[in-house]
Amino acid sequence: MTTILLIKSADQHPSVRETLDSVAEPGETVYFLRLPTVRCLGELIQEVNPMIEYDVEYTISCLPTGYEVADVVDFAVDVEADRICIGIFERTLTGKARIDDLTQSILLHEHVSGDLVVGDHAIILENLDYDQ
């Protein structure tokens, strides 16, 4: 199994932990895909310690400046991702996970489908299927 974890902020520990804890399986590869606005992941990675604490291999990649949803989807196709996890940063008054523009574009992308699960700290898209 392969998981992409979209990193929108260097302090999104809760969604990283939730993904590594209850979504990714030991031994699998996790791609930390950061937005160009997120500068340094060193501290986050050091604190969470994916290899020792969660037994997963990880790779850090970055979306290009001026990225579009197609860049995320192309990346997912390249690494044959089974899951994409997107951190939840805010909730609405009624407790719904707030959806930003990039998340909306991924959710409504015509070539990506699968199952959508809303966790405590992350929106998890799994059993992904790419209809190219």
Partner: peptide, 27 residues
């Protein structure tokens, strides 16, 4: 019902109304 249903419903409404902005979702 699920993600596919969301895409289907949102797509149709977006076509009819010109734009649609998802605000939030929950299980």
């Amino acid at each position: 019902r699920d993600w596919n249903h969301l895409k289907d419903v949102a797509g149709t409404i977006e076509d009819e109304h010109g734009s649609l902005e998802l605000v939030g979702t929950t299980q």
